[in-house]
């Protein structure tokens, strides 16, 4: 189940991440983006450790450069011309906005990385089940069959090798034919034996009226608090975003925050740090109780 933020109710964590995505995607203000990027980065490091650093350098950074470069090459708005090639202006504004846009994407991807760590398959099935129980059941069954099918395809490969009819190298046509045969064996096996699954379902009353859907999640006051705060944060984010101008066309204009926006920003930062605060507090509680015992 997990502890800390991961142990919270799926609905709360989901709404939290929707907030972070929406906020990061919609804002273009460097300060707001900076907050989002910073919070996402440290939480991801907290969750996944060193791997985040390599993810950042091997995937996110090249992507950012690519986005910024693409934007610089294809967008020619703005008033500050840096240089000109064959009558096309390359502007400072498009360079800056390209950079802003790449930070935006990076922040979103970092949040997505945290999302994948926190909102696991079971939680997605649960959330899906709230909307459509039948599809959630289908997803759960699919997740049951996938490892089964993988094991079977291994069995089939070994069986073919054991009688020497596996074509695993050589001409493409031969390999393709061999692969098609394997797939054929696999499909027959899966579908024909699937009648047992269907019997097992009917034997346990599938198809009776009034099916409920079970979940092992309990919605606590804490979960409610996170949910409500995330909703408030979304609204606050929209508000700050519209009150603080950050425009890059035709020229770069960025508002400095006034006192009220500053307060809202602090609030937003606090919400985005909420997961890591929750986790750290929980860890401290554990270490204290360990010391006591």
């Amino acid at each position: 189940m997990g502890t800390g933020f991961k142990g919270m109710h799926p609905a709360s964590t989901f709404v939290f991440f929707v907030f972070t995505f929406v906020f990061s995607m919609l804002t273009s203000h460097p300060l707001l983006l900076g907050i989002s990027f910073f919070c996402a980065f440290i939480y991801d490091v907290k969750l996944r450790g060193k791997r985040v650093v390599s993810y950042f350098f091997t995937a996110l950074l090249p992507l950012s450069v690519l986005i910024a470069l693409f934007n610089f090459l294809f967008s020619h708005y703005g008033v500050t011309v840096l240089f000109e090639i064959r009558g096309i202006d390359f502007t400072l504004e498009s360079l800056i906005y390209g950079l802003i846009f790449s930070v935006k994407t990076t922040a979103t991807l970092l949040w997505l990385d945290c999302f994948n760590e926190i909102v696991t398959g079971d939680k997605i099935i649960y959330l899906f089940g709230r909307v459509s129980p039948k599809l959630a059941l289908v997803v759960s069954m699919v997740l049951r069959f996938i490892p089964l099918i993988r094991a079977q395809s291994e069995d089939i490969a070994n069986a073919e090798r054991g009688i020497g009819i596996a074509t695993e190298s050589g001409k493409l046509r031969g390999r393709l034919r061999s692969t098609a045969r394997r797939l054929s064996v696999l499909v027959s096996w899966t579908l024909e034996r699937g009648i047992d699954t269907s019997d097992s379902m009917s034997a346990r009353g599938y198809g009776l009226r009034g099916r409920t859907s079970y979940n092992s999640y309990v919605f606590s006051v804490r979960d409610a608090a996170v949910l409500i705060l995330s909703v408030f944060a979304t609204i606050a984010g929209m508000f700050v975003n519209s009150s603080l101008t950050a425009s890059y066309n035709p020229k770069t204009e960025i508002d400095l925050p006034d006192a009220f926006s500053l307060v809202l920003m602090l609030f937003l930062a606090f919400i985005m740090l909420l997961p890591i605060i929750t986790d750290l507090r929980e860890e401290r509680k554990w270490s204290i109780s360990k010391l006591k015992s």
Partner: peptide, 8 residues
């Protein structure tokens, strides 16, 4: 149930 099994 057999149909839901096949789709899955």
């Amino acid at each position: 149930s057999s149909e839901i099994v096949i789709v899955s």
